[in-house]
């Protein structure tokens, strides 16, 4: 760490070679585009080298770098032409006038193995996730795929933890409806 903070070239190269694969994985999953992810990782490292003097080792180096790359990916997503967000209200759980849930019976529920062993079904799952509006999809990816805590996500997105949980829950509930034919083995 001292060598890195002193600007040592070898230490910088080791840092890049050690952490770039993981950072590229995170950026690819968040952005859904490998070329964009590579740009993002490059920009994230430039930022990291600029800020390395401020790194106080309160968190691990890898989680500090992950925060930087996610932040960079979010900036990239924001800079894309903003699409009008579609509402997901129609995908929310339904209750009748007696506050009872209306939910179809699920006699068969496919396992993750059954679904993901077929490349076409796996691609369909990824396509359904991509259908979620940005403000829900990003939170779902950071919480469920990158396994970041609500607190970490709330700091990155400048939203309260409560807001993150509400959006995460709505994103999962909407995705459940979108995935229903796949989960039931109908597609």
């Amino acid at each position: 760490m001292a060598a890195l903070q002193a600007g040592d070239d070898n230490a910088a190269e080791t840092l890049v070679r050690t952490h770039a694969p993981r950072m590229l994985g995170v950026a690819t999953r968040v952005l859904g585009d490998r070329a964009l992810a590579e740009d993002c990782v490059q920009e994230a490292f430039v930022n990291a080298f600029r800020k390395i003097g401020d790194f106080e080792q309160r968190s691990s180096l890898s989680s500090w770098l992950r925060r930087i790359v996610v932040n960079q990916a979010l900036m990239k997503l924001r800079s894309r032409k903003a699409k009008a967000e579609t509402s997901i209200d129609a995908l929310m759980p339904i209750f009748d006038g007696d506050a009872c849930r209306i939910e179809p019976a699920w006699p068969h529920l496919a396992t993750p193995d059954e679904i993901c062993e077929h490349a076409d079904r796996r691609a369909l799952v990824l396509a359904k996730i991509a259908e979620l509006p940005d403000s829900y999809r990003i939170i779902l990816k950071l919480r469920d795929i990158e396994e970041m805590s609500s607190r970490e996500v709330s700091e990155l997105l400048n939203l309260s933890e409560g807001n993150i949980r509400v959006r995460l829950h709505r994103a999962r509930a909407a995705l459940k409806v979108l995935l229903e034919p796949i989960l039931k083995g109908e597609e």
């Binding site: 694969p21 590229l24 679904i115 990824l126 996730i129 795929i145 509930a173 459940k176 989960l183």
Partner: peptide, 27 residues
Amino acid sequence: YLTSYKRTIEVSKRAFQEPGQQIPDEV
């Protein structure tokens, strides 16, 4: 509802763990 909700989370995670979505071996 809860069973299929939890399965949705598992399937999403799994879809991203497959080749091409995982951490690349080499940059």
